[in-house]
Simulated assay, not measured.
Amino acid sequence: MSKKSWVILAFIFCGLIYFSYQTLRPVEIVDVHQDKHWTDIVVKNFPVTRWGKVQWWEDNQDFLKEKYGIPKPFSDGTFEITFWDIGSGYRVDRMVDQDSDLLCFKDMDVKANCIEKDRVFSVSMSKNLGLQYK
């Protein structure tokens, strides 16, 4: 085999290892914030692929119901759950333009109660459209 072939194989091997690492990391629920029937879940290591996200939701619905009591549907059965990536952690909203893309949680009694808006997945139920994954 030529040197060029070895380099290509090494890149492919490294790519496979990285992809495996990304897909096999366990999802960590950092926080759950609820406002009536809307739920925001802050996570680390959420699956990258759409299939992985839906599969994780289906595998963990009972756990989320038992531990956090979610979803909490309206009387008509509708609900919305949004999963947000924690990114670099919670930050303080300094009320400047650079912080305009922050999502702040009023249920936290600390100054650092905001995260960057990086939605990774959402699940909603509506009367007209049924269960939807976004």
Results as ranks from 00 to 15, higher is better:
residue 1 M to R: 14
residue 4 K to Q: 09
residue 5 S to L: 15
residue 6 W to Q: 14
residue 6 W to L: 15
residue 6 W to C: 09
residue 11 F to C: 15
residue 12 I to V: 10
residue 12 I to L: 10
residue 15 G to V: 02
residue 17 I to F: 02
residue 20 S to P: 03
residue 20 S to G: 14
residue 20 S to R: 11
residue 20 S to I: 07
residue 20 S to T: 12
residue 21 Y to L: 12
residue 21 Y to F: 15
residue 25 R to W: 07
residue 25 R to D: 06
residue 25 R to E: 09
residue 28 E to S: 11
residue 30 V to R: 00
residue 30 V to N: 00
residue 33 H to Y: 06
residue 34 Q to A: 09
residue 35 D to K: 12
residue 36 K to N: 10
residue 37 H to T: 15
residue 38 W to V: 15
residue 39 T to Q: 01
residue 42 V to I: 15
residue 44 K to C: 01
residue 45 N to W: 07
residue 47 P to Y: 06
residue 48 V to A: 05
residue 48 V to S: 04
residue 50 R to V: 00
residue 53 K to D: 06
residue 54 V to S: 07
residue 56 W to D: 05
residue 56 W to H: 08
residue 56 W to F: 13
residue 57 W to P: 05
residue 57 W to K: 06
residue 58 E to W: 07
residue 58 E to A: 04
residue 59 D to T: 01
residue 60 N to E: 07
residue 61 Q to S: 08
residue 61 Q to C: 04
residue 62 D to E: 15
residue 64 L to W: 09
residue 67 K to N: 05
residue 68 Y to R: 01
residue 69 G to N: 10
residue 69 G to W: 07
residue 77 G to H: 01
residue 77 G to A: 03
residue 78 T to D: 14
residue 78 T to H: 08
residue 80 E to R: 01
residue 80 E to V: 04
residue 80 E to D: 03
residue 82 T to I: 15
residue 83 F to R: 02
residue 84 W to Q: 02
residue 85 D to K: 07
residue 85 D to N: 12
residue 86 I to W: 00
residue 87 G to N: 02
residue 91 R to C: 04
residue 93 D to G: 03
residue 95 M to W: 12
residue 96 V to E: 04
residue 98 Q to V: 09
residue 99 D to K: 03
residue 101 D to E: 15
residue 102 L to D: 01
residue 103 L to Y: 06
residue 104 C to N: 06
residue 104 C to P: 02
residue 104 C to H: 07
residue 105 F to R: 04
residue 106 K to R: 15
residue 107 D to H: 03
residue 107 D to T: 14
residue 107 D to E: 06
residue 108 M to R: 11
residue 110 V to C: 05
residue 114 C to Q: 10
residue 115 I to C: 02
residue 116 E to L: 13
residue 118 D to L: 08
residue 119 R to Y: 03
residue 121 F to K: 01
residue 121 F to W: 03
residue 121 F to P: 00
residue 121 F to L: 05
residue 122 S to R: 04
residue 123 V to T: 04
residue 123 V to I: 11
residue 126 S to A: 09
residue 126 S to L: 05
residue 128 N to M: 07
residue 128 N to E: 12
residue 129 L to T: 08
residue 129 L to W: 10
residue 130 G to Y: 01
residue 131 L to T: 03
residue 133 Y to D: 03
residue 134 K to D: 13
